[in-house]
Design a protein around this nucleic acid. Structure first.
Lengths: 137, 137
DNA sequence: CTGTGTGCAAACACTTTGCAGGTGT
DNA sequence: ACACCTGCAAAGTGTTTGCACACAG
């Protein structure tokens, strides 16, 4: 699946900004912040345009946002594109990276009577492989 | 446990703002926003004072913050005071209330090799009992 | 051609900081 | 008496909105 197709499938106009964002986010191994995305894009875009593009892509479930401690905001490609299940997110306290744990499915929580759940967000904080390996050197 | 004791135990000065916040949050059945807390306080306090008080109380693990979608911020009394385990939080999409699910312990997630977890945050979104009951009327 | 996206400026909301004065211990 | 808390003003930061113009379909 390539960026243009994704835009077409969602009846979104093909603009370089949207196309670029999707490309960058789709090829990233980790979730990226606004600045990390900007650095990897060819063109230069206004902040407003970024906000609006992120919003549009989020609304169409092409990318999703991960927020850590109401401070760090990162974006990643959405499940609907990669066809994986709902997954947990991992935040590394050392390198501040955020990763989608595709292989860590979200567990079902047993709620008290009368509560119905629709969606569950899980953020696991700790140390990632890379940082752990560096400690051992 | 009463507000003044909590402050003493943490070597914090007993000011009416801190005492009031603790009282209000401790007696609330749900997590409360800044405004909800203000409405239930007797005195009137500056926003800056609130921010600083929340920060201090958070740092001493007296209250904790729950953030929904990087937008809604609510505060609740912390585990260290109520002596319950780490729990999931529930957000009701209909009435926008946030509740601590004391009886919904956070499950252990199996991470890939090399990852170590320290803390896990779980936010379950759905419909709460009250809203569900209202629908049935 | 028409509707939508973009860039710029301004508005807005939230949060932090500096400082003078007040308060708890 | 002293350290620390508070309120006010100002600055800082992130996000949204209005508008004119550009661009995709």
């Amino acid at each position: 699946m390539i960026a243009v197709e994704i835009l077409n499938n969602n009846n979104l106009k093909r603009t370089s900004c949207r196309e670029g964002i999707i490309d960058v986010v789709m090829n990233a191994k980790q979730a990226l912040s606004e600045n990390e995305i900007r650095d990897r894009l060819v063109g230069n875009y206004d902040r407003t345009t970024f906000y609006r593009s992120f919003k549009t892509l989020e609304e169409h479930k092409i990318i999703h946002k991960i927020v850590v401690d109401n401070q760090l905001i990162k974006y990643a490609i959405d499940n609907t594109i990669t066809h994986t299940d709902e997954h947990a997110h991992f935040y590394c306290n050392e390198c501040n990276s955020v990763q989608c744990m595709e292989n860590v499915p979200i567990q079902k929580y047993q709620l008290p009577d009368g509560y119905s759940d629709v969606e569950t967000e899980v953020l696991i904080k700790g140390t990632c492989v890379n940082c752990k390996n560096q400690e051992n050197n």
